[in-house]
Design a protein around this nucleic acid. Structure first.
Lengths: 265, 265
DNA sequence: CGGACATTTGACAAGCTTCAAGAGAAGTGG
DNA sequence: CCACTTCTCTTGAAGCTTGTCAAATGTCCG
């Protein structure tokens, strides 16, 4: 039986913690993010007030009561969501290591959204107040932040196209490809021995998928099973293995742009 | 008969044109946008290379072949969209006077989207290259741009919640309220004599609405008619009149945040 | 008047949601 | 260590929302 997200409950202590010195940051060392000047690195390290751990399922930013802080997600998965007053929930975007969290609340006209951890998560915390100083003293970092904001908007754009115009099968194929690609770019995808199939950790459950794609839980399950029976993917022990990326891309009508390195705050 | 968008084809010359001096900009004078220092205003005027007119239905940014320019929409309506290869189209967001256009392509990882004019549109044009200079020399403007980016992401967030989780009636109610509110904030809504009902110019047709909400044209029409029969709105001669905003808000489950002034580039 | 385009309506089909219930896996407490 | 609870996944059946097809009406424009 395929069982998504049937991973053991990971103790919060299992989350890799952000090291004290940004120079030791595993994300930066991975070379998957754009390079940065030493002075900027020093500023970031100084700007960061502390780190924080959130347990799986925990709240990072409350939907109704944002806290005004900024975070960089160091390890783990989280998601942004909005909900209607009767409880219907829409996941707007998944947040993966390296993503900047909380920008929208900093600015946006109170258009509330919440952020919740999927796995145990570790975060670098930046105070709200420092942002203006950053823009003034380190304009290149300000530019990077705008870059990240535009990139995230691009993800939401894609998700809106998906929810608005793709059917259930296309939606699921899209999501699998999208998440695989994002993880791959930050070095979190692994290849089989023969290099044919890639796989990633996949900590979300079918309810998350349904809430992301604007589908019901039941229909999400049936669609997932259909794709599985077609031999396009495999989902077990909390890992996703893509068995036919070409077919998935084709179904989703989704072809990736060439990857550019992403800034990291 | 209610006929949406049955407005006369407006000659392109009818679009109010951006004045040569930014100090004379009708948007700025309207006091609906956040104030700015004279030095910044001077920079913007210098940064702007020229103005441009686009006819109704014309292309501002091609979906497949972005031009790398930045624009501020001075007058008229436009929209951002993405489409699938078989032609299905999703409108991501409407662009109204004061909105900054083209930021995402400047940054985003090639996540293509097109921008099309609904009405005749006049634009202020800024070159791609100047943006970095702006961030370095006028950090407050860089900050404003990030603000605008986060705000637009907020709109897309809302639209995603709508497309993903609201039913057809809720979606239509949402869109009517959303557009009315946005126009109202920039001073483009007018009140009846008795001040009870507000109305706005409404140049989009039912196909636009369907493409925004992720519905079919036919179902959009039927939903619109239902709301009309309930006496919630009136749509004729290219104007939208809201007859019961409370009911529309309630149906859409959409209550606005207090308006803050928006920056203008 | 004829052609192009937007709106409107009805009938029917399809996709998706909801309801209901069972199976599997994991955690808990005796 | 096992019964018990909880959570997630899975499947079938029925119903409703929405999409598709088709055609008529209305409006604008040349």
């Amino acid at each position: 039986m395929t069982n998504i997200g049937a991973h053991k409950a990971i103790p919060i202590s299992a989350a890799p913690v952000c090291p004290p010195a940004c120079a030791d940051c595993a994300l930066r060392r991975s070379q998957n993010f754009s390079a940065i000047r030493p002075s900027e690195l020093a500023f970031i390290e100084h700007y960061r007030t502390n780190t924080r751990l959130v347990e799986a399922g925990g709240t990072i930013i409350r939907e109704q009561n944002p806290n005004g802080k900024l975070f960089t997600l160091y390890s783990g998965w989280a998601f942004r969501y909005k909900s209607l007053s009767d409880g219907r929930r829409q996941i707007l975007n998944f947040l993966l290591p390296g993503d900047l969290i909380g920008l929208q609340q900093e600015f946006s006209d109170g258009a509330m959204h919440g952020i919740e951890a999927v796995t145990p998560v570790s975060l670098c915390v930046f105070p709200r107040d420092g942002l203006w100083h950053l823009f003034r003293e380190y304009p290149s970092l300000g530019y990077d932040i705008t870059w990240l904001c535009a990139r995230e908007e691009g993800f939401v754009d894609d998700n809106l196209l998906t929810a608005g115009r793709r059917n259930a099968t296309e939606r699921v194929a899209m999501l699998l490809m999208h998440l695989y690609r994002r993880l791959d770019r930050i070095g979190l995808a692994t290849k089989d021995e023969d290099g044919r199939f890639g796989s990633i950790e996949f900590p979300i459950n079918q309810q998350h998928i349904a809430d992301t794609l604007g589908l019901s839980l039941v229909h999400t399950n049936k669609t997932l099973r259909r794709l599985h029976k077609l031999g396009l993917h495999e989902l077990k022990n909390g890992r996703l293995r893509l068995l036919n990326t070409r077919a998935l891309e084709h179904i989703a009508d989704y072809y990736d742009a060439p990857a550019r390195k992403v800034p990291l705050l």
